[in-house]
């Protein structure tokens, strides 16, 4: 017999009480934001694909099988094979890993670094703020392709460098939005109180200001997820992204899509559909989140 303390019992009760609330909340979300729910479902499927790729398909996404190249979709290869005989479905499933990795890491890194910098800029104000703003202006205005080229050329190609290249402009954008929200918070008396208490700048920025700009942060974050995936595809298209033989949707579209667009259309269509669906899912979900968190927040 297990005995529970009074507090534990209470917690248990609370848990039990909370459960229906959670599912109720989910239901509420689905009812009020059916598009958002659909988006979330797409994202979940993607995450599922990425995590369980090894179990979903038994083909090797990298190994060439020249005897079976350019096979049209059939029972074995449900989406056909590419010019190296690699199963297209397998590469799409594994490609979800690359897409999610690039999407989540660059969106999180971009939004979070932007959050800290934006809040800091608002908090310190004055010259630091002015200078920081100009730097962000430059980064925002700067063509992505040059940044990406410089990153890829100095660090080399590879998933991690693609992430770096995509993260940089995200930082600038997040910092901008966060800063404008944080400016209002700086004026609230409790920040002065925290300062009077002698808290360090770091502590005030991270503990007191950052949590209060969570709404714009989350909105920027979700909006960035889809964009990161699109950017990865565009960089791959220009030859600056992820490289063979790593399975990546953008890469699958780059050479094969155009070359075999007609003789083997399955190579061109499915990776494009995968990208579109993923970005679509993230955007629908992001929009719903935006509506819930702050219906008044502008698109930018």
């Amino acid at each position: 017999m297990v005995t529970l303390s009074e507090a534990q019992v209470e917690a248990k009760f609370e848990q039990l009480a909370a459960k229906p609330t959670l599912s109720k909340r989910l239901w509420e979300f689905c009812r009020k934001q059916p598009l958002g729910a659909a988006g979330a479902a797409v994202v979940l499927v993607m995450i599922f694909m990425a995590v369980f790729a090894d179990y979903i398909t038994h083909f090797d996404p990298v190994k060439n099988d020249l005897a079976n190249m350019l096979t049209a979709p059939d029972e074995t290869y449900i989406l056909g094979t590419d010019q190296f005989g690699r199963d297209a479905f397998t590469r799409i499933v594994y490609g979800a890993r690359t897409a999610l990795l690039v999407g989540f890491v660059s969106a999180f890194a971009g939004a979070t670094i932007g959050l800290v910098l934006g809040v800091a800029s608002a908090y310190f104000g004055g010259r630091f703020d002015l200078l920081f703003q100009r730097v962000m202006d430059v980064v925002m205005a700067f063509p992505l392709i040059i940044l990406a080229l410089a990153v890829v050329a100095t660090l080399g190609t590879g998933v991690q460098n693609v992430i770096v290249a995509i993260t940089i402009p995200f930082i600038a954008r997040s910092a901008r939005v966060v800063r404008s929200n944080a400016l209002a918070i700086r004026e609230i008396p409790y920040i002065d109180a925290a300062r009077a208490l002698g808290y360090s700048h770091t502590r005030i920025i991270l503990r007191h200001m950052a949590p209060n700009v969570m709404a714009p942060y989350l909105i920027i974050l979700t909006a960035s997820l889809g964009q990161a995936i699109l950017l990865e595809a565009a960089l791959s298209y220009l030859g600056l992204g992820v490289q063979e033989p790593i399975p990546s949707w953008g890469l699958m579209l780059q050479g094969g899509a155009e070359e075999f667009a007609e003789t083997a259309p399955w190579i061109a269509i499915w990776p494009g559909v995968a990208i579109s669906l993923a970005v679509f899912g993230f955007n629908l979900f992001g929009d719903a989140l935006r509506d819930i968190l702050d219906p008044k927040l502008r698109a930018r």
């Binding site: 190994k63 060439n64 020249l66 010019q83 190296f84 080229l149 890829v152 050329a153 080399g156 190609t157 030859g239 600056l240 490289q243 063979e244 033989p245 050479g255």
Partner: peptide
């Protein structure tokens, strides 16, 4: 280049040679 390169990497793999491709502009 990239097509033949991808083929070459796969060929080397058969002898246990592990080639990482670095594609540069």
């Amino acid at each position: 280049y990239k097509v033949v390169g991808t083929w070459g990497i796969d060929q080397w793999k058969k002898a246990g040679i592990d080639a990482t491709q670095q594609v540069l502009p």
